[in-house]
Design a protein around this nucleic acid. Structure first.
Lengths: 354, 354
DNA sequence: TTGTAAGCGTTATCAA
DNA sequence: TTGATAACGCTTACAA
């Protein structure tokens, strides 16, 4: 429990050299006689001298005296009180840890921010911060931070950004829908910026061949990540069109904001007697974890490269450290189209309305 | 991006007092004239002096010179590369953050250990470590750590332990099964220490009225946390007894290691034409997150107080800091019986075999 | 009640 | 190639 501090001075005394020489030998500076260096390193090893452990504070303090903010090679990821039902956090972290490992760096995580800067940030123990999930407001509270600051997926003013091209992903899906012959498509999603980006891409892709997602089939709802509200909405949609005397809705495809909603849509459609994709094509977005349904009926979706986003966030922190005064930077990655089995040509018996 | 270091000396010069007086005023030592103290604190505030931020290193270094290891009020939780499919981590963390907050402390998380001590530990930036999920082998690698070290749920040699009384929980369930009239019970679970503890409690509870979980109905398998292996096992079990010419298995209840397996068991039993609980009672263990199935058919289970475990782990770190030489300590919490609807009296038509 | 001096362990500078 | 010295910002001991 007790760590008997081993210092450079102790090593120096033992070998009858000056402490400064020990410092030089340990830091690998060239101006040390080779045999002396070896003796010093051997002795350091023998008595358990570890530069980081012995006196990190002294080293940092002295280095800062030089005017430069010394690196700690630790990056802090922030996930505020998030339930992370889709397991995004794990995949982002995998990417971050992987990249950090390759750049001789470590990632620590905070899940609770108390309005103020976290202690490890305040104390200059981390080089940069990555906001990866959770509340954006929190990010604003922490923002006047003296260190590089990267946000993943969501814009935070003043922070560099790593995100995925939602509009481009939507465009890809929209074009695919159009190519299959779909003209009238519905959309369900939360009323958020991200959802609107995906929606606008979808619309643009459909528009290229005269298709559309009309306003009356655009179902934007406040986002609650839980089955029930989405299920209710879907029930309402499918029921409404059945009550209007039709067995199938007046749109031939349903684009969902994410895979979670898409999967619920598939289930709901099946329950309401629609065949997927024969009667109704359904698309998702995210490429989340595999589920049981997905084994039998894989979604057509845009996979978001979460591991890559995490790795890129770490790279962006490093880049910002090298370019502290550079303009704010965005890194935009492309999602990848996954061809599942929920998208086909529209049913032939549906009259194309104008 | 640049933090213009404000020092006590700067404040001192500005007010024409000595730096030591500033130090005393800021630390709230009694021997400072009140009006002077106020002037100093006002100036410190004005120019943005924050003790932690300005020079944490210097303070720590000087304090360590006094022979005591100074506190950082930061605790490190370790979750190694765990997928955490049950959301345990979130609940443990909630409890830890809550308790930490109340004791003016912060929790940071590590999800990747590279064989060696994490940097923030090596650098004396945390007061203690809590192993909360994931690989135990990793814990052993990190173990010769100079700081307090608490493990949650799993024994780690040399570390203090916070756990739940698995045997007592099993006993409660066993007695409940016995009281309902069950004499022959089966068990499924992984081949782990935890599972054996729960199993032994179950057996003991059943034994009080002559019941048992015989060896041939004790299905211990290497633990893979994924649907398929468990589903296969269950299929095998239920199929075997059907192929032997019976429509219902020769046991009247199935105790599962955890709620995850219990829920799969319920599904599997239903698929094999058994009514739950009329033909087969099923019990779980954990009290994990609610699922869709659980809304319609809630499990009878033992809820593990995860938030409390997390909070207790933080308390244990603090306790250990106060009692560095005390013997290794275990804190054992009790699970709480949740009466669901998967447990009833055994079917009357089953002859009680001896 | 306030100030002076010493020292924590390191790195940078200059001299030998 | 090595050493002596100063400094980083702070806390403690002792003196005024």
């Amino acid at each position: 429990m007790k760590s008997p501090t081993v210092t450079q001075t102790m090593i120096a005394r033992k070998l009858g050299v000056s402490q400064v020489t020990v410092s030089r030998a340990i830091r690998g500076l060239p101006q040390v006689n080779n045999s002396l260096r070896n003796r010093i390193l051997a002795e350091a090893k023998r008595c358990g001298y570890v530069p980081d452990a012995t006196n990190f504070e002294a080293r940092m303090m002295r280095r800062r005296a030089n005017g430069v903010r010394p690196r700690t090679d630790v990056i802090c990821a922030i996930v505020v009180d998030e339930d992370d039902p889709f397991g995004f956090g794990g995949r982002l972290l995998r990417g971050m840890n992987e990249e950090a490992h390759q750049t001789n760096c470590e990632v620590v995580i905070l899940t609770h921010i108390n309005g103020a800067l976290p202690r490890i940030v305040l104390r200059h123990q981390v080089d940069g911060m990555i906001r990866m999930l959770g509340d954006l407001e929190m990010a604003r509270g922490v923002l006047p931070s003296p260190i590089p600051w990267v946000s993943i997926l969501y814009e935070v003013p003043g922070a560099d950004l790593v995100t995925v091209d939602n509009a481009a992903g939507g465009l890809t899906l929209g074009r695919l829908l159009a190519a299959k012959g779909h003209r009238r498509v519905a959309f369900i999603g939360p009323d958020t910026h991200l959802a609107r980006e995906r929606l606008s891409g979808l619309r643009q892709g459909l528009a290229e061949t005269g298709g559309d997602i009309p306003a009356e089939w655009t179902f934007l709802r406040p986002f609650v990540c839980n089955d029930d509200s989405t299920k209710d909405l879907l029930d309402e949609i499918f029921t409404r069109f059945r009550m209007a005397g039709r067995t199938i809705p007046p749109f031939t495809a349903l684009a969902a904001y994410n895979d979670f909603m898409a999967e619920l849509a598939v289930r709901s459609a099946l329950q309401h007697g629609l065949r997927v994709p024969e009667d109704l094509s359904i698309t998702g977005f995210d490429g989340a974890l595999p589920s049981r349904l997905r084994e039998t009926l894989p979604l057509t979706t845009i996979a978001v490269p979460l591991e890559e986003l995490g790795a890129e966030a770490v790279r962006l922190v490093h880049w910002r450290l090298e370019h502290p005064t550079a303009l704010r930077r965005k890194v935009v990655l492309d999602g990848q189209l996954i061809l599942g089995r929920t998208l086909s040509a529209p049913p032939p018996h549906l009259p194309e309305e104008t």
